[in-house]
Design a protein around this nucleic acid. Sequence first.
DNA 1: TCCATCCTTCCGAACGTTCGTCAGGAACAT
DNA 2: ATGTTCCTGACGAACGTTCGGAAGGATGGA
Lengths: 192, 192
Amino acid sequence: MTATRIKEVALKQFANNGYEGASLADIATEVGIKKQSIYTHFKGKDELFLDLFNAVLAKELNFVFEYLDRHKQLSIDQLLYGFLIQYKDGYEHDDNTKFFLRVAFFPPSHLYEEIVKQGYNYLDTLETMLIPVFDQAIAAGNIHSDVSSEMATVSFLAVLDGMFVELLFGGAEKSLKRIEASWFVYWRGIKS
Amino acid sequence: MTATRIKEVALKQFANNGYEGASLADIATEVGIKKQSIYTHFKGKDELFLDLFNAVLAKELNFVFEYLDRHKQLSIDQLLYGFLIQYKDGYEHDDNTKFFLRVAFFPPSHLYEEIVKQGYNYLDTLETMLIPVFDQAIAAGNIHSDVSSEMATVSFLAVLDGMFVELLFGGAEKSLKRIEASWFVYWRGIKS
DNA sequence: TCCATCCTTCCGAACGTTCGTCAGGAACAT
DNA sequence: ATGTTCCTGACGAACGTTCGGAAGGATGGA
């Protein structure tokens, strides 16, 4: 199916070059067709892009959900640190994650509002999923009593964003140093 | 001087709309001239933009230098926390800071390399300035012995980036919650 | 089996818009 | 007279997009 091929190629090109950096002509060339043919399968560039964006967002949220579910038996520090590392690896090897970060941080201006809204929806959902995890850790006595689950969550999301930034600008390798430092200080900051 | 007016308006428009969001036509309109007249004062859009970028970068570094110098008598936690707050306020009220963040995070693709290079130059300089501050705090026994000055610096820069992200997407008001949480956990993570 | 028809997919050509950019000339001050 | 500043007008490149038609396979009736 050509539509599927177009989606694959577009995902990759959007992930690596951003919305405006990926022209329909370039996408079509890599698929092996002319740019006009894309209009047989999609109404236009925006529809193609938003189709991908929604699919990617769903996959990202699903990844988080699955990760937390599959590793719920881990200690909280292993769970959270592993989460950071998983995301770093995803950025290296998974076009979904790369697309997600690239688009969330470099959104096309005419879709800015929609994308930022979805981005915060992602963060809110993540927060909703993390708070019970911290509540559980607090109940188990693993978190210092000065630290509320909300504060732990919010600052963890900040650590996550700090990692995202370094991933985007410095790449996966360079980001490892920051992850290690951030995580060390963060964990020392919330552990009991 | 028209050139100065152009720079002022361009700084503001680049800060609020980014490189591609600010057209020469819009800039000229706000100045009260036609877009072609800009070419009397600048070779083109890129020259205007890079002129501003370099000036802004110098001002930002100067701000950091001055801040650290003027408040060197403060305790390290007050110094660093105040630094975050200062930056937040700067983003709200200072077009320089807004331009800096906007451009650093949403760089025009054909100048990407140059901008990211300068961005890392900024971070490196910041790191160079902060390490002695932490060294001093360590010598004074204010930082936990498990935490090296480098680790404290790197993770502080991550906190800073986390704040930048929230500033850019959520605005100054929303970012305060994140700043508080991040700082609380960060300081608890490095203090002795 | 054959042929007419229809639908899908793709492409050549062209259009419309947005931008940055350039050439040439008018107004004005020095 | 000279230089500066700004304007009118136009150009060219890059995109996304639309239109009309060709190629090919599938369908259904004779």
